[in-house]
Amino acid sequence: MSDWERKLGDRLKRLPPLKAPASLLPMVMERIEARTRWAWWAWPAAARAASLAGLAGAAGAVAFAASRLASWLQAAPSAVPARALGMLASAHNGAAAALGRALWVVLSSLGQPLLVPVLLTYLLCAGGAVFFWQLASRPRGLRHIEEGV
């Protein structure tokens, strides 16, 4: 390293820090406030309890409906598409018939024994992951800051 490079290195190290813009602090605080305003943990306690109850109810309903649908489709897999196609054909509508055939494909695939439990498990896992991510990402000191303790 030459003398000039050494001198340059020393001078760079001694460069004074830049002055942060005066708007930096208020902008950071504004972004924090905006985040906390809409965050789940910032909702009123009653709203949080209601949302948890609603989530649990929805999960239960989905589970129940899925299990009923699965057992029904497994018991009579051809009844649904036949009835649906019959209704559509009587309307003499080609597009509707095509839609009906597409629905039949979807419903037939729902009749697969493993599809509904897999779908249900996926939905429950996704819902649980979102819920626990919300809990885990909650800043620990947030409540104190919000309440100005």
């Binding site: 820090p17 830049l18 002055k19 942060a20 813009p21 930096l24 602090l25 950071v28 605080m29 000191g141 104190h144 800051i145 100005g148 303790v149």
Partner: peptide
């Protein structure tokens, strides 16, 4: 001193350092 004020002080103490490094 409140936690919010603590954090504002923290920003005040380090904002020049952080801004300089980023710039």
């Amino acid at each position: 001193m409140t936690a919010a004020a603590d954090f504002e002080d923290f920003i005040s103490d380090y904002q020049d350092m952080v801004y300089t490094l980023a710039a």
